[in-house]
Nucleic acid binder design. Structure first.
Length: 304
DNA sequence: AGCCAGGAGATTT
DNA sequence: AAATCTCATGGC
């Protein structure tokens, strides 16, 4: 991806099929989201990777360039740090992917043809940090999204770090080192069930020791192998594994097929009076091969 | 007030 | 293997 540096900002070239507003709409789907803030036509986020900590504001003036503005003098000094920030943002918005083949398929697909019109230019918004992606998936298991966002906010505000800008706090996700030290009871006051607490602490320990890492999963060229690696871990079933493979590791064929949001979107799109069975879903989505992750993400946006 | 929610693990069939 | 049960808690 091409990018150019300025004094307090960096411009990143945007790919074909990108609409900033439709991406921002996804980002502000819940008022309790605490990992970034959408203000007017921009989004502000604290990027915290290792020792690097920068507060950025993203905006798009015309649709071919994403501007990364560094707030409050947090501009990274070294070229390596700048590259890290650009890399993070490219991953976040999936800027390096050519999604034209997906659009060619989707515009002919009964389930997707309305979705690609409704949210044209939406990218599969990622969660580049593996620990964050795993925790978010576990938090979201079997509870409604509203409650999941509320839980995440309480978790982040209890164990994360923040910096203040314009009297607002911008948070970084709790580190696996911090969470690995906890006991399940420590989280009982934030409405986390004991079981979810155990899952998250277990994941934190695996990541702290390096037994589980993003690099290790990415090196598995066959995503079915990465899926198996994940589902062997307590607390990670097929839904969570595929959710993380989709939103963090970006395997395009990752497919959380039992996702209740996907099921309800299919029911909605096909105007069904009941939920589709698993076999029906497999039949309806047979044309998605190789783009299951994008298709699922687009289906999620259908009902909003 | 009761069903549902961007499930997983354990138990039973 | 596949179906069923249990777990937990808030939203609407």
């Amino acid at each position: 991806m091409q990018w150019t540096e300025h004094n307090q900002s960096i411009d990143i070239e945007l790919p074909d099929i990108f609409n900033f507003k439709n991406n921002l709409d996804y980002l502000q789907r819940d008022p309790n989201e605490c990992m970034y803030e959408v203000i007017e036509n921009t989004v502000i986020k604290l990027i915290h990777i290792g020792d690097l900590q920068v507060l950025v504001q993203l905006s798009v003036n015309n649709e071919d360039c994403l501007t990364v503005h560094f707030l409050r003098g947090t501009a990274p000094k070294s070229a390596a740090d700048k590259a890290t920030v650009v890399q993070y943002i490219c991953e976040w918005f999936d800027l390096d992917r050519d999604i034209r083949p997906f659009y060619n398929m989707a515009s002919q697909d009964d389930l997707l043809k309305d979705a690609v019109k409704k949210v044209q230019g939406l990218r599969l918004i990622g969660i580049p940090d593996l620990f964050e992606a795993l925790c978010w998936a576990v938090l979201g298991q079997q509870i409604n999204l509203k409650f999941a966002y509320s839980l995440k906010r309480q978790f982040v505000e209890k164990y994360g770090e923040s910096i203040t800008y314009n009297d607002k706090k911008y948070w970084s996700f709790p580190s696996c080192e911090t969470i690995a030290e906890l006991n399940a009871e420590d989280m009982s006051d934030i409405k986390m069930t004991a079981r979810k607490s155990e899952y998250i602490i277990g994941l934190a320990k695996l990541m702290t020791t390096g037994e589980l890492s993003k690099d290790k999963l990415l090196k598995m060229s066959d995503f079915k192998r990465a899926e198996k690696e994940l589902t062997h871990i307590r607390g990670i079933g097929p839904w969570t594994a595929n959710y993380v493979l989709m939103r963090c590791l970006r395997f395009p064929a990752a497919f959380p097929i039992n996702d209740i949001g996907l099921i309800n979107s299919i029911k909605y799109q096909l105007n069904m009076d009941r939920k589709p069975t698993k076999q029906e879903i497999l039949n309806y989505t047979a044309g998605w091969k190789g783009w299951e992750s994008y298709a699922t993400f687009y289906m999620w946006r259908l009902r909003y």
